[in-house]
Simulated assay, not measured.
Amino acid sequence: MKTTLEDLLAGLPAQEGNGGQPLGTDVSASKSKASTSVTQLDRTTANVRRVLDDEALLRTEKTAKLKAAREKRDAGRKG
């Protein structure tokens, strides 16, 4: 017995927006993938930027805490 696409889709619920029919294949997989493709270099760049941004945020927070502690210490010396 040869299984067809319709046999496989028979148990699936109807999809919205297409009248309950299987989605058409008017757009090839290569065309849809090409429009949203992200290269390894793009992914690496995004990851590096995310890490650098996180480190910069942590550095800024640490600097602010140290500055506040320094000001508190200096205020105690004057008073």
Rank of each mutant, 00 (worst) to 15 (best):
K62L: 12
T60H: 03
E55F: 04
A29F: 11
A56E: 12
L66C: 11
T45F: 08
D53P: 00
M1G: 01
G20A: 05
G19Y: 01
D53E: 06
A69F: 12
Q15P: 02
T39N: 06
A75W: 13
R43H: 07
T60E: 10
S30F: 01
R49V: 11
S37G: 00
L41P: 00
T60Y: 07
T39E: 04
L8Y: 07
A75S: 14
G79P: 01
Q40E: 06
D7V: 01
G11M: 12
V48E: 09
D42N: 03
G20T: 12
A29D: 04
R70D: 05
A10S: 10
S32T: 15
G24H: 08
R73Y: 08
R59F: 13
A14P: 10
Q21D: 01
K67D: 00
G20N: 02
R77E: 05
Q15V: 08
L23R: 05
D74C: 05
P22F: 00
G11E: 06
K33V: 00
N47V: 00
L52G: 10
R59H: 12
E55M: 08
A46W: 06
P22N: 03
V27Y: 15
L8W: 10
R49S: 14
L66K: 10
T3I: 00
A68T: 05
Q40W: 02
G24E: 08
L9K: 04
D26R: 15
V38R: 09
T45I: 10
T4W: 02
E61V: 15
G17E: 06
L52V: 02
G17M: 05
L52F: 14
S32K: 14
G76V: 12
A75Y: 12
T4G: 02
R70E: 02
K33Y: 02
E6V: 01
S37Q: 03
G19Q: 03
R49K: 12
R73G: 04
E61Q: 15
T4N: 04
S28F: 14
G17Q: 07
D74T: 00
S28T: 13
G24S: 11
T25G: 13
D74H: 06
R73P: 00
L58T: 11
L57H: 07
E61M: 10
T25S: 14
A75T: 08
K67S: 04
G20H: 02
T44M: 05
T63W: 04
Q40L: 10
A14T: 13
Q21N: 04
G76F: 11
V51C: 09
A64M: 06
K67A: 06
S28Q: 14
R50K: 11
E6C: 01
R77A: 10
A75H: 14
V27L: 14
D7Y: 03
V48T: 06
S37A: 13
A56K: 03
P13A: 12
S30T: 15
E6F: 03
M1I: 09
L23Q: 01
E71H: 15
